[in-house]
Amino acid sequence: MSRRSEQRREAVFTVYQHDLTGRPLHELFEQGTAMFTRSLAHATTDHQEELDALIGQYAKGWTIERIAPLERSIMRVALLEMLHPDVVPGETPIPPEGAISEAVETAKRFCGSDAPKFVNGILAAVLRDRAASDPPATSA
């Protein structure tokens, strides 16, 4: 597991704690938390309305409130990196497929048995639809 993967997972759990407790993010970070983790968690909560709308749109038959809090947090962080790759200044963005893969691995490790498929389905559908709506690059 790469150091960046661990920092992403730490951001997921911070967003999760924030979601459950309503406590400000700065109170949830442990001393020495990496700037990448802090930036990712803050950006995720800053874009939460947009991210939740997308999750709700693709989670057929599920409201955002019915989705388990940890699964929501996993998808929020992955979607943030997929849709806003420049969110952490000075960092090389993760490819969308990498964000999905890490989200699925986190769901496998920390959520119920149906969670990885659910997380993968929503994130892959967002990626597929975004790719289909982006015009292909043309060379002049």
Rank of each mutant, 00 (worst) to 15 (best):
D129T: 02
D52W: 11
I94Y: 04
I74C: 08
G56H: 01
A131L: 14
L83C: 04
P95L: 09
R72N: 14
T21S: 15
A11D: 13
A107H: 12
T37K: 02
E65I: 03
E102T: 02
G56M: 06
G22M: 03
P136I: 08
D52G: 00
E97R: 07
I74H: 02
R9Q: 03
L20S: 02
I100V: 15
E50W: 12
T63G: 14
G61R: 04
E97D: 08
V126K: 02
T63Q: 10
H42L: 11
T63W: 08
L79Y: 10
A41G: 04
E105M: 02
V88S: 08
L83Q: 05
E102R: 10
I94A: 09
Y58S: 02
P136V: 12
E10R: 11
G56L: 06
S139L: 13
A131Y: 11
R38Y: 06
R109C: 04
T92Y: 05
S113N: 06
I55N: 08
A125D: 14
M35N: 07
L123G: 07
L25I: 00
E71P: 00
R38A: 10
Q31H: 11
G90D: 12
A43S: 09
V12K: 00
F13R: 05
A68G: 14
T14D: 06
A103C: 02
A53V: 05
V126R: 01
E30I: 00
P85H: 09
H26D: 15
P96K: 04
K108Y: 06
S39P: 00
R8H: 04
E27G: 02
L70R: 01
R8T: 11
Y58M: 03
T21C: 04
A41F: 05
H18F: 11
A132L: 14
T138I: 10
N120E: 15
T44H: 11
P136M: 06
A11C: 13
T138F: 15
R128T: 04
L123T: 04
G56P: 06
E49T: 04
T44E: 09
D134E: 14
A78I: 07
Q17C: 04
F13Q: 03
R3F: 10
T45M: 14
A125E: 15
R38Q: 15
A59R: 01
G112E: 10
V87N: 08
L80K: 07
A99N: 07
A34L: 02
G121W: 07
P116H: 13
G112I: 02
T138G: 07
A132Y: 15
A34M: 01
V104N: 02
K60Y: 06
L127D: 09
T92I: 11
E50Q: 14
E105V: 01
A41R: 01
P135Q: 10
P89N: 09
L123P: 05
L25V: 00
I55S: 06
A107T: 12
P96Q: 00
P24Q: 13
S5T: 06
P24K: 13
Q7H: 12
S2E: 13
A131R: 15
S5A: 11
T21V: 01
E91T: 05
D129K: 02
V77M: 01
H18I: 00
H42E: 15
L123N: 09
T63H: 08
A78T: 07
A41H: 04
R4H: 08
E91F: 10
T21A: 06
G61C: 08
P96G: 01
F13V: 00
G98F: 12
F13C: 01
T14A: 13
P85L: 07
I94V: 14
Q7M: 13
F110N: 03
S113G: 00
